[in-house]
Design a protein around this nucleic acid. Structure first.
Length: 875
RNA sequence: GGGCGCGUAGCUCAGUUGGUUAGAGCGCCUGCUUCACACGCAGGAGGUCACAGGUUCGAGUCCUGUCGCGCCCACCA
């Protein structure tokens, strides 16, 4: 059996990914239960914007899926991470189109097969290719088509909400991005603290020599003012109630209205009212029935209503307005002012609030149910501190603007009658207008916010609105895994839409992990150029290593700072596993052992009792950690089980046992059993290497992915304290090694060690004489503890005295170590004594704590005694 | 303005309801090419758990305050 010295990353990955799918172990369809998320190939839906966040999602989802599968749970479904897959799907589609193929005709499996073919041909360059195609697409002209199923679900959801009165169309103040030329939801805007100014402008009171000073951060909007507001309680302006002011520059008279929005404490206490261009003013305008004067258009240019300023860009208009006011002596003062400026989160253009007719979802009633779902525990956030954020958002929610003036997306299923102008919402174009009988219709040109369809993901992918077997079996889904950055965008919307459309929550548990950041803790983003391409590093380090490095970093509530180090160490782990297998395979060949996954034999050897016990313990712990979503603990447990326990001790001992054995004896059985058990435990975390190695041991050809999760061995008697003897052996070997190191004994120097043992250690030392000699690199003489006068290099503890015979003993080294140990023990004893003599402690502490402290105290005391004696002997 | 979080070894971080000597990886020091692995082995150094109080028999862990850092939400001119 040939096996390479160094594990080549990625060598078997594409092969096994394909094999799993071809054999029906996992499905290629990420939107279906049992999907494989291994990320060895670009998943069809997320290719273009593949980043480490996806890799993290996929790693956890895939590990959870595999673990649940091995535990025998086939009802688990983790909804995928795809939401705005539109652009990326298009990229792949375009690539197909260039070959004259349509994705829907191809079918999913074939589609995926082609992606693989590219992957094999071009390696990871496929991402660049795809990016290049993505860049060449003129997104504003492209019409995206959803899959028929998803499309139907979106239409259905829209209609149901509309019929319940939860969707309405209305004229409201919305966020408008002049560059994207579309309405945006509140979430799609970002607020940036910006250094601006507060301009104080004088509005002369009509037929008076007085004026009112208003303060504004946007002087150009004054052209659209239709009132100024003062507070009725403001004593300064009591006499002005009911009068008007002359709007400067525009030569219009506008009323002075009384409104609570004017805060007497702020500035002059007078507010200009521009209903068409400010959300607050819009509301005030409704209260006072003020006209809307739209002075800025969809391209952020001044309209004809802006008189002499018409046609100017809004910022140019601002400069002109300010200059003109100054010339007229109406600019009282300008203060520097820091204000949060709303910008488009996609293109950073300053948002222009506009009044516009849009479609909205009425959020208040939906939010109540969504809050209840979390309060009642129907949905649980992990970690729980997200509850507060979620509740806070839901309680202050405003209606959700869902229409977008984009060219790609799902068209709104509404038709405008060209005769009477009324709107008909329906699954398809209406035959004739129910209001006027006309048959002339135009479909609403707007498309839906992509998060509207994303909100349906947990059930639309299962076949909803039909009552499919998948819906019945898998809905509500088990677990959603995602980054906290889309809590509002996606998670909250899924909860709302799920409850409204299906009457049930979309998932039981939401695990929110942190963001993957770079070495400087910066968020990875394309604009900063600090992104790591998952496909590049999987090629370089291996997918298993990338997965392991990510899992190790997932701790609740914190981000992952992702550096090269993490990858290197995880790759080292892969290689270690590979080489452990190499050792085993080489020995199998030498001993003539055929590949087989055996049951465990009797656990007579101490290392077997110890290892089986460790395996039981780890299997239990890993399960617990998966259940509690403590993925970093999963990784850590596996790491130390395999490296610290299996490799450093078990294999080292077994290596010696097997040296002269042939055939499948008990040592071989137990070694293979232990190793295959570890492969199973590791499989959810590092599926590819474990699958590869499994097939080299298991002749049946079955996947490791369908093996049952290791159960505690009831059939093997491990004795009362299965790990104790092995720990004694470890202690003996460690003490020998310590002495050799302290005394600077050359490794080639053959030395004699004498071990004077108490009964437990004696049994171990006699039975495992040869093992200790090899691991400690000494000639060993074992005898009962008769405590003669010890000379040479001595180490003593309560279990045994160890002497290494040397011509020159470095006493200062021995003394140094002893003194350190003595000081440590003395400190411990002092501390336990202080506790045990404390009446309050004796009264207050639970019995078990007191008991264990007493035990410890006597152990420390005995240990200290031995160390002191040893120290005196050195004097 | 409202909300959340962080500060533990030189670096990146774990530390589960308070309970023995606070852990890991990387880095560092010493010694090893020992026939699985130098992507390795053996040994070692390194922490007043940001600071100050408090609760407790007992605090890295709970409470209050201070300092430093970060994030999210928000229509006050």
């Amino acid at each position: 059996m040939q096996i390479e010295k160094v594990y080549e990353p990625g060598r078997f990955e594409a092969h096994w990914a394909r094999w799993w799918i071809e054999n029906g172990i996992f499905t290629a369809d990420r939107d279906k239960p049992g999907a494989v998320f291994s990320m060895v190939i670009p998943p069809p839906n997320v290719t273009g914007s593949l980043h480490m966040g996806h890799m993290l999602d996929h790693t956890i989802m895939d590990a959870c899926t595999r673990w649940h599968r091995m535990k025998g749970d086939n009802t688990l479904w983790l909804p995928g991470t795809d939401h705005a897959g539109i652009a990326t799907q298009m990229v792949v589609e375009r690539q197909l189109a260039e070959q004259g193929t349509d994705r829907h005709q191809l079918g999913r499996e074939e589609f995926l097969r082609r992606v693989w073919a590219w992957k094999e041909k071009y390696g990871n360059r496929i991402t660049d290719q795809m990016k290049a195609i993505g860049d060449s697409v003129d997104w504003s002209r492209e019409q995206f088509t959803f899959s028929p199923q998803l499309s139907r679900a979106v239409t259905e959801a829209f209609i149901r909400l509309y019929e319940k009165g939860l969707i309405y169309r209305g004229e409201y103040m919305i966020n408008w991005c002049p560059r994207c030329r579309t309405a945006l939801s509140d979430l799609e805007t970002a607020h940036e603290e910006t250094q601006g100014s507060l301009w104080h402008i004088r509005y002369p009171v009509t037929e008076s020599d007085r004026w009112l000073t208003v303060a504004t951060t946007r002087p150009e909007t004054m052209l659209g003012d239709t009132a100024v507001a003062i507070n009725a309680r403001d004593e300064r302006y009591q006499d002005l109630h009911g009068r008007t002011v002359n709007l400067p520059l525009m030569d219009r008279q506008i009323p002075i209205v009384l409104d609570e929005m004017a805060d007497p404490e702020f500035g002059s206490g007078v507010v200009k009212v521009t209903p068409a261009h400010d959300p607050n003013d819009f509301e005030a305008g409704k209260r006072h029935h003020l006209p809307h004067l739209k002075v800025i258009d969809e391209e952020a240019r001044m309209t004809s209503e802006a008189g002499p300023y018409a046609g100017l860009d809004r910022f140019e208009a601002r400069r002109r307005v300010v200059a003109d006011l100054e010339r007229l002596g109406l600019l009282e003062k300008v203060q520097p002012y820091v204000l949060p400026l709303a910008t488009c989160s996609r293109c950073k253009t300053v948002i222009e609030p506009l009044v516009s007719k849009q479609w909205f979802v009425r959020m208040k009633p939906l939010a109540e149910k969504a809050i209840d779902a979390v309060e009642s525990g129907a949905i649980r956030f992990v970690p729980e501190n997200w509850n507060a954020t979620y509740f806070n958002w839901m309680r202050n929610i405003r209606d959700w603007c869902i229409s977008r003036q984009l060219w790609w997306g799902h068209r709104i299923p509404a038709w405008h009658c060209e005769e009477c102008g009324r709107i008909v919402v329906g699954r398809e174009a209406p035959g004739k207008c129910p209001h006027c009988g006309s048959n002339q219709f135009a479909q609403d040109p707007d498309v839906l916010d992509t998060w509207f369809s994303s909100g349906l993901w947990p059930f639309s992918t299962l076949g909803w609105p039909d009552q499919t077997p998948d819906v019945a079996k898998y809905y509500p889904t088990s677990l959603l895994i995602t980054g906290f950055d889309i809590l509002f965008f996606w998670v909250a919307r899924m909860i709302v839409m799920g409850i409204e459309c299906t009457g049930e929550v979309p998932f039981r548990v939401v695990h929110m992990h942190g963001l993957v950041r770079d070495a400087e803790k910066q968020k990875m983003s394309k604009t900063k150029g600090n992104t790591i391409d998952p496909l590049d590093i999987t090629a370089q380090y291996g997918t298993d290593a990338v997965r392991m490095s990510l899992l190790k970093g997932v701790a609740a509530g914190t981000d992952i700072v992702y550096t090269e180090d993490r990858l290197t160490t995880a790759r080292n782990f892969s290689n270690k596993l590979w080489n452990a297998a190499r050792l085993i395979f080489m020995n199998m060949e030498r001993s003539g052992v055929e590949p087989v996954v055996p049951g465990a034999a009797a656990a007579e050897a101490i290392e077997d009792r110890w290892m089986f016990s460790r395996l039981n313990c780890s299997a239990r712990r890993v399960s617990t950690y998966f259940e509690q979503h403590r993925y970093n603990d999963v990784a850590e447990e596996l790491w130390s089980l395999f490296w610290d326990h299996f490799c450093d001790w078990y294999l080292e001992v077994k290596k010696l046992r097997l040296a002269e054995n042939t055939g499948l004896d008990d040592h071989w059985r137990n070694l293979l059993y232990s190793f295959t058990t570890i492969l199973k435990l590791l499989h959810p975390a590092i599926p590819f290497i474990t699958e590869e190695l499994w097939h080299r041991i298991d002749p049946s050809g079955a996947s490791i992915a369908v093996q049952p999760w290791p159960q505690p061995r009831e059939d093997v008697d491990l004795g009362p304290e299965p790990e104790r003897d092995m720990e004694l052996l470890q202690l003996i070997v460690t003490e020998i090694r310590n002495l050799r190191a302290d005394q600077k004994v050359d490794k080639k120097q053959r030395v004699t060690a004498r071990l004077y043992c108490r009964p437990d250690a004696l049994a171990v030392a006699e039975t495992e004489h040869a093992i200790i000699e090899r691991l400690g690199n000494v000639s060993l003489h074992v005898s009962e503890q008769s405590a003669p006068h010890l000379s040479g290099a001595v180490r003593s503890n309560t279990e045994f005295d160890l002497v290494i015979e040397l011509p020159d003993v470095d006493k200062s080294a021995l003394r140094g170590r002893l003194e350190k140990e003595i000081a440590q023990l003395a400190g411990l004893i002092a501390r336990t004594d202080a506790q045990l003599s404390n009446e309050k402690f004796m009264k207050g502490a639970p019995a078990r704590v007191i008991e264990s402290m007493r035990e410890k105290r006597s152990e420390y005391t005995a240990e200290l005694q031995k160390k002191k004696e040893a120290h005196e002997a050195l004097a």
